[in-house]
Design a protein around this nucleic acid. Structure first.
Lengths: 193, 193
DNA sequence: TGACCTCCGTACGGGACCGTATGGTTCGGA
DNA sequence: TCCGAACCATACGGTCCCGTACGGAGGTCA
């Protein structure tokens, strides 16, 4: 949170880091110049030296967020068995509690063109990834497309429930059973194919 | 939008109606006194006569929202076949595009205790409803609980995608096929049971 | 008609935030 | 050592919203 250099001199990246932290906790709305300055023990004078305005910082945050999807997919790509790849993906999704809040916050801000742009990119990449897995499992193009959409809706929904009503989700003790059930669900997509 | 009485004299309900309209379009954040006053062609003087403060209006909006879930469940209850009941539910979910925005907006505002209270109530009622359907279809308690959660996550996810990235969802021409696939998915929950 | 209550407009103060202006302060290099 | 650039604090004006104070307009009923 507080930057490294004890001699307080901030770089642009320090502002981006703090902004990401704030966004993770309180959504994009929490990325505000004056509160961030307070958090960093600085003033707006510093911020407006490193950035043209608030939207420049938002774009930096959105780019960092988009890169996360690429890293996730890159992390899964080496897995050869498409079904294991999907299962691993869902396992990671269930573990991810830190970033879930920002995920859903962004989905609620599609009115902002900058947000819409980056979220659409991420969505396409994720759905494409899942559809590829399903095709690799032997499903037809149509079935893979529908299945990927359903799987992704499930993904988003679990994220939502994780942040919004965690009490509803299974307790850690039951989570393994729940995840297993999700895999059963995925495995039985289009059983007739 | 503009209340009935041509002689401009507002009732509390007029403010609630306008607030619901604003919330449907722009989320709870759009329920602000001064913008609503402009929309109604009135001033804050009117509002603060009918309501103690802004939060009183928000509570009225949240109550109206919660009542919608009760009406939905009441609408489905007469259906005797539990599977048809579930299928009908999902059909309605796919049709509902007007309210989807507010749904997901509320999920992003669980930090507000008033929102958290009403959303938790709605969530419990919906998940319980789905679990009852699944139990009626012959699933065990455990299986029905997990299945309801997964089905509800799917529900929420579809809502999210509806509002956020509608281009990703199937075109009207393909929607029937997609819905059918969803039902296949539900039907195959826990095939071993 | 006049007292009274309901409803609403106007005016004001306050808070949170954005962005600008301007004058330090600190640092590296000639 | 001194200069210039990088960096930052202070102070200010502007916007948008909340909430309060207060007075006036319009009905109602004796």
């Amino acid at each position: 949170m507080v930057p490294d250099k004890s001699t307080s001199r901030l770089a642009a990246q320090d502002w981006v880091d703090a902004a990401l932290e704030a966004a993770t906790e309180g959504g994009l709305g929490a990325v505000a110049v004056e509160p961030l300055a307070r958090r960093l023990g600085a003033t707006k004078g510093s911020f407006y030296w490193h950035f043209a305005d608030r939207s420049a910082l938002l774009i930096a945050v959105l780019d960092a967020w988009l890169a996360r999807t690429d890293r996730l997919i890159a992390q899964l790509s080496p897995i050869t068995d498409p079904q294991v790849r999907l299962e691993t993906l869902f396992g990671l999704v269930y573990e991810d509690e830190t970033w879930a809040g920002l995920e859903t916050d962004l989905l609620g801000r599609m009115g902002d063109p900058a947000v819409a742009d980056v979220v659409e990119h991420a969505t396409v990449r994720r759905v494409t990834f899942m559809a590829d897995c399903l095709r690799g499992m032997g499903l037809s193009d149509e079935a893979a497309t529908d299945g990927a959409l359903q799987g992704y809706a499930l993904w988003i929904g679990v994220l939502q429930l994780t942040t919004a009503v965690p009490a509803t989700l299974p307790t850690p003790a039951d989570r393994r059973r729940f995840e297993a059930a999700t895999l059963v669900l995925l495995r039985n997509l289009y059983p007739g194919d």
